[in-house]
């Protein structure tokens, strides 16, 4: 018994130490640097200032942020549209087919997402698989531009983030009490009414969790717009990277990171407030 507790202590301690040294401390350093001044010799130096945050108000950065938010928002909506029916089918599938379907969602993610992005390049390039297949039987007369378009960016983002939407949706749908659906039908509800008044509200926590899990990483996956979109737009990720590496303006890059962190924190707070209210509503 004692040994078990010792193990528990070590396991928790290791986790905490890990988070403290690789998440908390670097995070605090970023916050600290964001109040410093740019210095080419040492990257940043003491005079404390708020200049960096004031500079973030420049309309150019509002545009960078706006573009990033639009990409993330559209990706989230597209993921939701694709995942919702799929998760429903998955949850209604027979018990022995479900593991197979789940595996099909998960297996591609055992490969690095960068490699999968390069694979999409091979599919979509002008002399790639899709264009060759369409050209051969004469469906099109010259290659369609797929790569380096917004279309390619969304294909890449949705493909990379799909499981983060499917899995939370599946988790709530699987637990859904099917008797509620039967009751609704018995009481004369049409299929549409059953969906809007029963299925949708019950799956809402999954929708919210999925949206958060897709939206936040979508802000950071800047290499997908770079590789598939041709790096013609600047997103928050590229912007922060350029500030650190090219401009060697660490304080400004840090300020942008802190701002992004606060924005994401705000979204998580909104999510928790909503889900708590929802749970209370449900227990009533």
């Amino acid at each position: 018994m004692n040994e078990r507790q010792g193990f528990k202590f070590i396991a928790i301690f290791l986790n905490m130490a890990w988070f403290a040294s690789f998440v908390l401390i670097p995070g605090l350093m970023v916050v600290g640097i964001s109040f410093m001044t740019r210095d080419t010799g040492t990257f940043f130096s003491p005079p404390l200032t708020l200049t960096q945050y004031r500079e973030l108000l420049d309309p150019v950065y509002a545009k960078v942020l706006g573009t990033s938010l639009i990409y993330s928002l559209n990706t989230t909506l597209l993921c939701l549209c694709v995942s919702y029916p799929f998760a429903w089918i998955l949850s209604q599938a027979s018990k022995h087919r479900r593991p197979l379907l789940l595996m099909m969602v998960i297996i591609p993610f055992w490969t690095s997402s960068l490699i999968r992005t390069y694979a999409l390049v091979i599919l979509m390039k002008a002399n790639g698989i899709i264009n060759t297949l369409l050209l051969a039987p004469g469906i099109i007369s010259e290659p369609v531009s797929l790569l380096y378009t917004d279309f390619a960016v969304y294909v890449g983002l949705v493909y990379s983030l799909l499981p983060f939407m499917i899995l939370p949706l599946y988790a709530v749908m699987e637990k859904m009490d099917l008797r509620l659906l039967e009751a609704a039908r018995d009481l004369g509800a049409s299929e549409y009414q059953v969906f809007v008044h029963v299925v949708l509200p019950l799956s809402l926590p999954g929708v919210l969790a999925g949206c958060i899990m897709v939206f936040l990483p979508a802000m950071g996956l800047f290499y997908i717009p770079d590789l598939l979109g041709g790096a013609k737009t600047m997103l928050m990720g590229n912007f922060i990277k350029n500030q650190f590496l090219t401009a060697m303006n660490w304080p400004f890059g840090s300020a942008a990171s802190v701002f992004l962190l606060m924005l994401m924190g705000l979204m998580i707070i909104i999510y928790f407030t909503f889900s708590r209210r929802f749970n209370r509503h449900q227990t009533l």
Binding site: V60, K63, T67, A231, N238, F239, N242, Q243, A247
Partner: peptide, 19 residues
Amino acid sequence: VGDAILVYERYWERLKTGM
């Protein structure tokens, strides 16, 4: 180019945001 890199970076951001 020393600190002029900040000027380059500014214009680069403008090019990529279309402003």
